[in-house]
Design a protein around this nucleic acid. Structure first.
Lengths: 198, 198
DNA sequence: AATCATTATTGACTACAGTCAGTTTTATCT
DNA sequence: AGATAAAACTGACTGTAGTCAATAATGATT
């Protein structure tokens, strides 16, 4: 029936709606448990029970346990990043603005260091290429924000933004992955950014 | 007996010697299997059998499976890095020298991309802080080499070397972790390094 | 409303990293 | 040599992520 297709385009059918509801329930359950107990201490069984689905079903919605964590964080991170950029003082120097952005991002991760470690591990170096969650939207938001900041002082804003982010990433990794002090990492980062932007 | 202590300082006792032999056998076995079958396809059981020890013993010598991979690569990487720095043309520009170093490092990883992915994953973001292998010696070698390169053109060689390495790290991660083309990553890297060093 | 094809769900099951209580080996001392 | 303490070793065992063959739900078609 030709009508069925047209209707499907207007509104999601029952099937689609169920899927979305289920996905929301899964993410909700995962969020609760990860935050309450930590990542390693939460079993996929527990998440399935809490979301009221079978164990197997969980892995139809997430590629692996780590993917659940990405689902939990993705929207929240995008929202946070947008807020951070929105609240910048445009009068501050580019380096100060960059530092404000990166400090806030780190502060965000500091709210739950253990979860952020696992999350970053998966974002930086996914266990398997075909398992990595899609964070393109998040990255685009970050890059475009950074480009706006560096534009006034950089010949090639794209290159400068990418470099700035690379330096931030390194600081983040040093802090979360190598046990480096957050303050020290940020101090280093500022020095590096100053060197980068002339 | 006071003599026992004195002798121990001169030469390793049988116990110590056995331990070193065993560790060497383990690394040898792990190297064979990882290269032949890949990391995921090799079980710790297989390594234990090949090294002719019990399963449990393996974990007295390595903190986890990933740690075995680090043991396999550590010495070889240090050696490789030293060679790379030793063979540089001192007349080339700092950026060209940096690029030569980073290209060779990437070429080294390209020899076994799958193993390098797992290795890098563990080096960049260890699954657990108290499980990460010690790669201080390697990092020191890299930093000191990089500082020598950038010294002629950088006010603060330490900062510049650290920045250069951060940019390389990001390129490496983009390539191995995000599926970015190696050539493209290197092209980007060169642009960034040019921007960094004046 | 009965049939069929497609898609979604399930939980018993598998494979494997890592542990630990018990055993063996080594070194020390009399 | 024998006794004792300390260190090294072991493999049966455990916990859990992820799979898959079987089942159920859905929706299209007559």
């Amino acid at each position: 029936m030709a009508n069925a297709v047209a209707l499907d385009q207007l509104a999601p059918g029952r099937r689609e709606r169920n899927k979305l509801e289920k996905q929301a329930r899964i993410v909700w359950a995962a969020r609760q448990l990860f935050h309450r107990q930590g990542f390693a201490e939460t079993t996929t069984q527990q998440i399935a029970v809490e979301a009221d689905i079978g164990t197997g079903t969980l892995f139809l919605y997430a590629k692996c346990k780590e993917d659940l964590l990405i689902m939990v964080f993705k929207d929240e991170m995008l929202e946070t990043v947008r807020e951070i950029f929105a609240r910048l003082s445009p009068k501050a120097s580019p380096v100060d603005q960059l530092m404000a952005v990166f400090e806030h991002m780190m502060a965000y991760h500091a709210r739950d260091i253990d979860l952020s470690r696992v999350l970053l591990r998966e974002l930086v170096m996914p266990s398997s290429l075909d398992r990595r969650g899609d964070v393109t939207e998040l990255m685009d938001a970050i890059y475009s924000g950074l480009m706006d900041i560096v534009r006034p002082v950089a010949d090639e804003p794209e290159v400068a933004a990418r470099s700035a982010f690379a330096l931030y990433y390194f600081a983040l990794i040093s802090w979360l992955g190598r046990g480096f002090e957050r303050r020290a990492a940020l101090t280093h980062l500022r020095t590096q950014l100053s060197g980068l932007l002339k």
